[in-house]
Nucleic acid binder design. Structure first.
Lengths: 219, 219
DNA sequence: ACCTGAACACCGTTCAAGT
DNA sequence: ACCTGAACACCGTTCAAGT
């Protein structure tokens, strides 16, 4: 089979993480599946944090944002967001990976971030505001990509949703009336289409609204 | 000293997590600090996940949202968000805790969530939309509360920000021009005031904009 | 009800050594 | 350059036993 390379290790780690959760991604387990000694991995990654960063980089590596063009910034920001979501979709452990990683050490993520920063600036936001907007947009994209509604519609995930819904429905309807009422959608039974469009719309609507406020206060 | 109770254990765990990071919160370490055998903790929490849920619950327990009143929903949603942010502020490990916990198992979090759901409904959003909005608002609040700008202004955190900024500044200015330019604010050197107000404004502006769109499309 | 002691099956990582 | 072997200092958790 293929040679043992940093890339191959990260890919295998993602397979394990997607299938069994990030906790199952262990140096020893990973080495075992790759038919190698645990220490072999330390040649390619100097520790587990670096491996996680490698996984994060691999997750985004397929999505290189094109150079900024002449279209309105709203459109480009939306493309960036849906592109990122699409790249992370199908990797259930993606969000978990990014939670454990210092995003500043992930080159492909920095590339996307850089693009978002530029678009924020061109929308008329200050340096500080652009930082906040971009952080917020990227974080929201990661969260949206993590929608349970989209994870491979396996039998066992449907079962987990069912259990979760039942758990919510059996809560006290006096103290948590709305939770009980909306147990179905809350547990993950949402329309995937709506989840994506609505989430992206929400983020972009907020950014656009603040951009408009900026313009009217300092014309 | 105080008796060994689930509450006391969660408090001590939060102290460790806030001071040294969540990884330092270990059953054995925690038991040691409490002057007790590791197994003693298993009487109060049946496993570590339950302990983390207890920590999450303790984080929010100080913030009980008042019943919904007659004020406009925008105002109440804002109060809910800033209240949650204030409750989590000063607990650097809060975000990490919530990342590891199934939020549905945290009663005090469910109470806040329930409130947000109700306000979403009263804003005219559908059941599904209210679910998405509330999830999004709560998640954003947790992220905003985690602002590095707010963590106890200790010497060592200032040093970490400096190192991070330098790391960003020494990146290739060709591939990441905006990142390099905005290294300062990106590394965490933002005005705390701006961070909060702008973040909350962003989320609420998005929600309000979508509420307005709903009204005009189905009057 | 509340806690201890000993044991099990794991971790990440270092360090010296092999080829 | 790339990988192995043995060892260290940890983990979470179970299970039987104490009071």
């Amino acid at each position: 089979m293929g040679k043992l390379t940093a890339q191959a290790i990260a890919e295998r780690a993602l397979e394990i993480g997607d299938a069994e959760g990030l906790d199952a991604v262990t140096i020893r387990r990973l080495a075992g599946e790759l038919g190698v000694t645990p220490m072999a991995l330390y040649w390619h990654y100097k520790n587990k944090d670096q491996l996680l960063a490698g996984m994060a980089d691999h997750l985004i590596s397929g999505f290189a944002p094109g150079a900024a063009d002449e279209r309105p910034w709203q459109e480009q920001l939306r493309d960036l967001m849906v592109g990122l979501i699409r790249a992370l979709r199908g990797h259930p452990c993606a969000r978990n990976v990014f939670d454990h990683v210092d995003q500043v050490t992930v080159p492909s993520f920095l590339a996307v971030w850089n693009q978002a920063l530029g678009l924020g600036r061109s929308a008329g936001f200050s340096v500080e505001e652009s930082c906040l907007i971009s952080k917020y947009l990227l974080q929201s994209a990661i969260a949206i990509a993590d929608a349970p509604a989209h994870h491979r519609e396996g039998q066992e995930v449907a079962e987990r949703v069912r259990v979760k819904r039942l758990g919510l429905q059996t809560l006290s309807a006096d103290t948590y009336p709305y939770i009980v009422e909306m147990a179905g959608p809350l547990a993950g039974g949402l329309d995937p289409e709506l989840y994506d469009t609505f989430g992206v719309d929400l983020v972009l609507a907020g950014i656009e609204a603040l951009a408009a406020r900026r313009l009217e206060s300092s014309p």
